[in-house]
Design a protein around this nucleic acid. Structure first.
Length: 587
RNA sequence: GCCCCCGUAGUUCAAUGGAUAGAACAGUUCCGUCCUAAGGAAUAGAUGUCAGUUCGAUUCUGGCCGGGGGCACCA
């Protein structure tokens, strides 16, 4: 039973019985009135604004109308609304519902009985969704921007799975373009310094990173005005045409190193892509799509093929360069059409990138809508903010870049320090530190709305207290430790007859809201809703823990409290899973 | 110049057109015989500005001020 839906239905029926004219059909169908969770617990467990919405049309005072509706609703207290304790009118005309405490307590037992699947819905059942995210560039470092895209994309994927849909995770690595020519140009210059294939991953990616920076610097004129621009541009063509064995070998080497490095990072971060689609593979198709729509969608201009965005209140972008090469825009078209060819029954295709590409995507998707509206109308771009430090925007071009690896290792060291005096083995410490570090980083990214920048404080450290990932993990570990104790110790307490409490706390109420929240977070593409909820939930549990002894042979309520602890742990574990955060065994 | 996004406690972030705008950090206090103190309890502190729409605006509209991003062959 979903209490929120039941209440909505009851209010709707009451309106009908009262013969309240609902002539504004549009408003009704769009849920003109809402059943909400009031922020202030004194306002009950649910509230409804229906009287305020309809008062004006009926030329009645909201409070008077509210009283009428309440009188009508009270007739249901012994039938449909038998889970409701009382209904009252408050404030300007809100109708507040107080639910019987016993109902919450019983729900907790139901949740425990239901097992580990608590929270997953089926509103998205039968739907197939593609999520594309992370999109790193081979030969370039995997930086914290990619980490951000990964954290957000993974969490959205899980939210969509949590609503019952099938998700395909796609990654679109860039494996072609000027950035690679720059790197290979420098590699040729430093041929004798190239690490062996069996060197450490760190050594190889470090080398590639340096080559990219050197190539980029050499591309720009130095003090005397000289640059390697023409050499690198020529090399770019050679790479594209694949007609030099030497260059091909360097390309394949760097590509392999990069992709191996990415795979190991995905494993650490907890992402498993179903497929990589490479940018180079999209070039022929992109080119073909654009060429076949010249005159209709695109037009030639200054030797290039462009889309005139101004006609659609956007800006103009080049899709085929004057050299006849497809730009990123053309390849993007190829990619999105390819997605629907490979996964034909897709209902929704989501692309996660940094928000500096927001305008770019508007142009590309507009042109796509004129080519294949079936694809375009199901494709959605979501732009995320940048990860910023006090020093400003990071750049992989100048080498002033924070790699994902470096950030993870820095945070991991902080955790190591914190647990140095704990009685864990070295292996355990390492595992814990990694899980906690990833949790801290992901939480920092996911706690706020997706579009805006995430600011790391100047000391580049992450707090492990309060509003943080480790705070959530700690609450879960604590609950787990208690349940472990019950299992190890005598099961006397567990087997006692089930006595339910007279009054329930905020903890029970929050736990029962979880499925509703998952659905909402999914519909709004808003992982921060989950993050926010979990902080409140953890606080409620910690508070409960501080004022109640859970395992107590003498207390008949102990059995209930253990069940409550289990329900909390399931909810917290599943909530953290939605954020892509694991719960360590100890910490 | 044109287009897009954003201005909320000292700081970093929340808030479904709704009731007394929530947290956390930093500040000031308190809690250690008791299941993990990475914890709990208390306290103080905010909607850039001027209009408009609305029964009701942090939320919607417009102006101003301030910040960020984008705008032709990079990805």
């Amino acid at each position: 039973m979903n209490m929120k839906n039941e209440l909505g239905r009851a209010v709707y029926k009451a309106l009908q019985r009262l013969d309240i004219p609902m002539n504004d059909q549009a408003a009704i169908s769009k849920n003109a009135f809402k059943i909400e969770y009031p922020e202030n617990p004194e306002h009950g467990d649910f509230s409804c604004n229906v009287a305020m919405v309809f008062a004006k049309g009926l030329k009645s005072a909201p409070k008077v109308l509210a009283e009428k509706i309440v009188t009508e609703l009270e007739k249901d207290l012994t039938s449909d609304l038998n889970f409701v304790e009382s209904i009252s009118v408050a404030g300007l005309g809100f109708i507040n519902f107080k639910i019987k405490d016993r109902v919450f307590a019983e729900k907790i037992l139901e949740i425990v009985h239901g097992g580990a699947e608590y929270g997953w819905g089926n509103s998205g059942a039968q739907k197939k969704v593609i999520v594309e995210y992370t999109d790193p560039n081979i030969f370039k470092v995997f930086h914290i921007g990619h980490l951000m895209s990964n954290a957000i994309g993974e969490s959205l994927s899980r939210l969509i799975q949590g609503s019952g849909s099938h998700v395909t995770r796609l990654c679109y690595p860039s494996d072609i373009g000027l950035h690679i020519a720059k790197s290979i140009w420098a590699m040729k210059k430093h041929a004798d310094e190239i690490p062996a294939d069996d060197s450490s991953s760190h050594k190889k990616t470090d080398f590639l990173g340096k080559m990219y920076v050197e190539g980029t610097n050499s591309y720009e004129p130095d003090n005397s005005g000289k640059s390697a621009k023409s050499e690198i541009d020529e090399l770019n063509r050679v790479i594209y045409e694949k007609n030099s064995a030497e260059v091909n070998a360097l390309y394949e080497k760097g590509r392999k190193w990069s992709l191996e490095h990415f795979e190991s990072l995905y494993a650490t971060l907890g992402t498993k892509f179903d497929e990589n689609i490479y940018e180079s593979e999209m070039a022929p198709q992109g080119l073909q799509i654009v060429k076949s729509h010249i005159g209709k969608v695109f037009q030639e201009s200054e030797g290039a093929v462009v889309f005139k965005g101004e006609e659609h209140a956007l800006h103009t972008r080049v899709f085929i360069s004057s050299q006849g090469l497809p730009t990123y825009e053309a390849k993007e078209l190829g990619l999105n059409v390819t997605k629907f060819k490979k996964y034909p029954d897709t209902n929704e295709s989501i692309i996660i990138t940094a928000n500096e590409q927001n305008e770019y995507f508007k142009v590309v998707l507009k042109s796509l809508s004129m080519i294949d509206n079936n694809v375009a109308s199901r494709t959605k771009h979501i732009g995320h903010g940048m990860l910023r430090f006090a020093s400003g925007k990071m750049s992989s071009r100048t080498g002033n870049v924070v790699t994902a690896e470096a950030l993870i290792s820095d945070i991991k060291n902080l955790v190591m320090e914190k647990i140095s005096d704990r009685d864990f083995s070295a292996t355990e410490k390492d595992e814990i530190a990694e899980v906690v570090a990833i949790g801290a980083i992901k939480y920092t990214i996911l706690r706020q709305a997706i579009g805006s920048d995430v600011i790391f404080d100047s000391s580049a450290s992450i707090s492990f207290e309060g509003d943080s990932g480790p705070y959530l993990q700690y609450a879960a570990v604590r609950a787990g430790a208690i349940l472990e104790k019950v299992k190890i110790g005598e099961s006397k307490v567990k087997n006692q007859t089930k006595t339910l409490p007279e009054n329930v706390s905020l903890l029970e109420k929050l736990i029962t809201r979880f499925p509703d929240l998952v659905e909402r977070a999914r519909n709004e593409y808003a992982p921060q809703r989950i993050a926010n909820y979990l902080i409140t939930l953890a606080g409620a549990f910690n508070s409960y823990y501080a004022s109640n002894k859970i395992i107590d042979d003498q207390d008949p309520l102990s059995s209930y409290r253990i069940n409550l602890t289990q329900a909390f742990l399931t909810t917290m574990t599943n909530g953290l899973w939605l954020l892509g955060i694991k719960v360590p065994k100890k910490m």
